[in-house]
Structures are given as C-alpha cells and as structure tokens.
Amino acid sequence: MSLLKPGDVLAHFSDITPEFLAARGLRGLLLDLDNTLVPYGSYADEHDMAAWTHDLRAAGIRLYLLSNATSRRADLWLSRLGFDGVGMAGKPHPRAYRRAVGKLGLRPEQVGMVGDQVFTDVLGGNLAGLHTILVRPLADNALPHTRAARVLEGLVLRRYGHAWNNWERP
C-alpha cells in the first residue's frame, strides 16, 4: 500500500509554491493535465494555471507535462504554456516517469509528480522514486473508469488519513 501513499496531499495545484518545493528539495515537477491543471476535456484558457507555471519557471523550477491525454490535446496545452511534455504517456508505467525526469536533467529525488489520481500519478511517481503530490480533482466530469477508480482511491486515502470529501475546493 505504501506505493499508493502520496508524499503530500493538497487542495489545489496553486498550493505548490517555490518555497514549498525548496522545503522538499525539489527543483522540477512533472505535471498531469486533466483534472490537475485544467478540468477534464477543457480547452478554455486557464489564466491562473498559466500564471502559476510562469511563476514557477521564473523561480527556476523545471516543468514537464506528463499526461495520458491524447498527444493532440497535450500539444495544444504545451504550445500555450511554453514548456515540454508528452501526451499518451503510459502512466503509471515507471518508464514514462524516468524518461520525463531525464528530459528535466534532474535526479528523481529532485522531482515531484503532481496529479489528481492515486492509481496513475501517485503509483507511477512512487515507483520511479519521485516525491508525489496529490491534488484534489478540479472537476467530477472524468471518464467512467476514472469515476470508478475514485471509489477505490477514497478507500486508499482514508487509510492514510485523507478523504476527497473533506477537502475544501479552491
């Protein structure tokens, strides 16, 4: 079960600041897209998220998008955000995470994985030796298999003293 335990559990990606990262020795982040940075399926401009990534990059934090979204969808967001990444990543396979860490030019212990799913983002990040940061999903409009996984995630999170329904929404 410890492979399913996130290093940190936060209400929103914007709770991750340069100071938060420095306190954990993190110099880079792998970022999930859907329901982590933007609501699932959204193409609307997300000014808060763009400002957040800009501020992190200005502070010297290296960013890489690691998403299971289609490559087309990931590429659209990457062109808006101005950093590198990949869609159809194959999470939670640790090889996807190791490749992404290599693109950042950092060691695994210097990189955090930020995502909204225990069985992809947290599991894969932990298998790859990253610091995992679970954030509350931005929307409840996920795919049917993701909605089913949320039930199991709730059991896992309760085991570690967290619960989706206890988190305040941003």
Rank of each mutant, 00 (worst) to 15 (best):
R57Y: 07
W167G: 02
T17F: 01
A89T: 09
S67K: 11
R98M: 10
N166V: 03
V101Q: 03
R80G: 06
T120E: 00
K103R: 09
L65R: 02
L29V: 04
G129W: 05
E168M: 06
H162D: 03
L157T: 07
W77E: 07
W167P: 01
H47R: 13
V86D: 08
A44Q: 06
L21F: 15
L81F: 08
L81M: 09
W77F: 11
I61G: 12
Y97V: 04
I133N: 14
V38W: 07
E46R: 06
W52N: 08
D15F: 13
R147G: 02
A50Y: 01
S79W: 02
A59V: 14
N141I: 07
A74S: 12
R62Y: 09
D32P: 08
I61R: 11
M113T: 07
V38C: 09
H54D: 15
R169P: 01
L30S: 11
G102V: 06
A74W: 10
I61D: 11
L130M: 14
R24T: 15
G102L: 09
L130H: 13
G28P: 00
G28N: 00
P108I: 09
A128C: 08
L78G: 12
W52K: 08
G87C: 03
N126F: 10
M1A: 15
S14H: 12
K103H: 04
R27H: 12
S14T: 15
T17R: 00
G87E: 03
A74K: 11
G28S: 00
K103A: 12
I133M: 12
T53A: 12
G129M: 03
F13C: 10
G105I: 03
S14W: 06
A89G: 07
L4V: 15
G129N: 00
D48K: 07
F20M: 10
D48T: 09
R98G: 02
V101T: 05
L63G: 13
P92R: 09
L21I: 15
Y160V: 01
G41W: 04
R136M: 06
M1T: 14
G124I: 14
R158D: 03
H47L: 13
G102W: 09
V122L: 08
A96Y: 14
L78M: 14
F13V: 13
G7R: 13
L155N: 00
D32F: 06
A51E: 13
V135Q: 09
V135H: 10
H47D: 12
R27M: 06
W164T: 01
R150I: 14
W167Q: 09
R95C: 00
V114A: 08
T120Y: 02
L21R: 14
L21D: 15
G112E: 01
A59F: 14
A44H: 05
N126H: 09
R98Y: 08
T146S: 15
D32W: 05
L63M: 13
V111Q: 05
R73M: 09
A163Y: 07
Y43S: 04
M1Q: 12
P18G: 11
V135E: 11
T132M: 04
P108K: 10
S14D: 07
D55W: 02
L78Y: 13
D45P: 01
G125Q: 07
